[in-house]
Design a protein around this nucleic acid. Structure first.
Length: 106
DNA sequence: CTAATGACCATTA
DNA sequence: ATAATGGCCATTA
């Protein structure tokens, strides 16, 4: 029972997870939306990397999608991401979400 | 320190 | 429509 070998979350990661937690059920945000919230408008890729490491079940990572409406990746599998979104009422047709309908914050 | 990595994005072919 | 490309940026090796 020694010290934990797990890495401490970086400040950047905490901010990403915090922002993601604000997305309400039934809505989605894009990776770029999160980047803009953090005042790092070109960091979409890094946002995805941070979400991939999120350890908290309470953080709804599945609500963050790509800017073209494609669902995008998920640590526990794309299929699970789609299932969770559908469960919340998000309509996915041809692998895509209508962002005009389901995006938060305009 | 440098180089590689990836849940992205826009452009080009 | 798909595929390749170059850029982007925090983290990791």
């Amino acid at each position: 029972m020694g010290k934990s070998n797990k890495r401490l979350a970086s400040d950047f990661e905490k901010r990403v997870w915090g922002a993601t937690q604000k997305i309400p059920s039934g809505k989605v945000a894009t990776y770029t939306d999160i980047a803009r919230m953090l005042k790092l408008p070109r960091a979409a890729r890094a946002i995805g990397s941070a979400l991939n490491k999120n350890p908290f079940a309470a953080v709804p990572c599945h609500r963050v999608v790509r800017s073209d409406g494609i669902v995008g990746g998920y640590a526990r599998g794309n299929v699970e991401k789609i299932r969770k979104l559908r469960r919340e009422g998000i309509v996915i047709k041809g692998g895509k979400i209508n962002l005009v309908m389901f995006r938060v914050w305009l």
